[in-house]
Design a protein around this nucleic acid. Structure first.
Length: 312
RNA sequence: GCAUGGGUGGUCGAGCGGUCAAUGGCAUCGGGCUGUAAACCCGACGGAUUAAUUUCCUACGUAGGUUCAAAUCCUACCCCAUGCA
């Protein structure tokens, strides 16, 4: 039944923020008859706009974009949700005879698609809140000691200060009564389309990338980022949400709370994003079979060379 | 011009006679990452050298001095900040 689609390619375009993934993705889509599936953990949210670098209609050039602007900003979406949604989208797009192109910088999401997470109950927000309260009062190290008693193997693999992971392991045990360390290795089988994914990683010169990030951030602020945040807060978007915790938004919230000046918010945002870009590169270096493209996506050009493997 | 406080590694900032290549923060670089991932965490970080927690070199404004020993004390000079004129 899948004889026709089984040989068709699926593309993924990754790379650090501001490396031109959108431009390259759209160009590729126009060339091969593709549709974009967003693979960015922040662009999935509705409402938040200016600092997310979501493609404008002009940039989309008529190419359909999926999994953008479709989750309520007060919902905390996660990698498992995305993998499920993206898989469904891939199937749907291919059923129409089109080529799926995954574009975005969230490496964890992409990996989750290719190497599914193990079975796990949905996050219990109430439990998570309680654990966070303990973290705030007694410190992450205390939670780590708790985990040592409940699931020593899991604790041994984590640094005591790595609270998100310590909390996750604790949550799993508390919700299921079973050891996180025992179940974590049980990844699901990769989806049957996973070996048809060709991953491109954009890698522009570091200093030019940093310059671009700095400039882009200033544009975001001068385009009314602060006003946007005020508006979102007035609409009832939670300051603690993942959406408002993202680059730019987080620092504006701090400014609005009187904790820093606008100038400081801009500088800090630029710093946040530069550091983030570096971490993304670290992540992608580990991705198996990636084709590295040394440059910005908007100056790449989708010629045949794009399909020939290079190394970093 | 006088007074006072300062000049420390890419940067901010501790140190104020020896255990100082010099605490710590930041930047930078590298790494990790199994349902918060634009999150979170770990490491390196003057230069050269070694099998090594090895050895050597260069460094705390500049130039001298005191001392077995100075980033730390003294003198002069340069520069900065604030106050008085």
């Amino acid at each position: 039944m899948a004889s026709n689609t089984s040989k068709k390619p699926i593309y993924a375009i990754a790379g650090p923020t501001a490396s031109g993934k959108t431009a390259l993705g759209v160009e590729l889509a126009l060339k091969v008859g593709g549709e974009i599936i967003n693979c960015d953990s922040v662009q999935i949210y509705r409402e938040i706009q200016i600092a997310t670098a979501k493609p404008t209609d002009e940039e989309k050039r008529g190419v359909p974009h999926h999994l953008i602007d479709y989750v309520d900003p007060n919902v905390n979406y996660n990698a498992g949700d995305w993998a499920r949604d993206a898989s469904a989208k891939i199937v749907e797009i291919e059923s129409r005879g089109r080529i799926p192109i995954l574009a975005g910088g969230t490496g964890f999401y992409l990996r989750t698609l290719r190497q599914p997470l193990f079975e796990s109950p949905k996050t219990d927000e109430g439990l998570r809140e309680r654990l966070k309260t303990i973290r705030d009062k007694r410190g992450s190290e205390h939670l780590h000691k708790m985990l040592s008693r409940l699931d020593g193997d899991a604790a041994a693999k984590l640094f005591p200060r790595d609270h998100p992971r310590v909390i996750r392991a604790l949550e799993y045990f508390l919700q299921t009564g079973q050891l996180f360390s025992k179940h974590q290795p049980n990844r699901g089988a990769p989806p049957d389309f996973s070996d048809r994914i060709t991953l491109f990683v954009l890698n522009p010169p570091r200093s030019e990338l940093y310059d671009k990030i700095n400039r882009r951030t200033e544009v975001h602020y001068s385009s009314g980022l602060v006003e946007e945040v005020k508006h979102l807060l007035a609409l009832g978007v939670n300051e603690d949400s993942n959406a408002l915790g993202s680059h730019g938004y987080r620092r504006v919230c701090e400014h609005l709370r009187g904790e820093r000046t606008v100038e400081s918010a801009i500088e800090k945002t630029q710093q946040d994003i530069r550091n983030y870009a570096k971490r993304q590169l670290t992540w992608f270096r580990r991705e198996a079979g990636a084709v590295w493209l040394n440059g910005f996506g908007d100056e790449m050009g989708v010629g045949d060379h794009l399909f020939e493997p290079t190394s970093e």
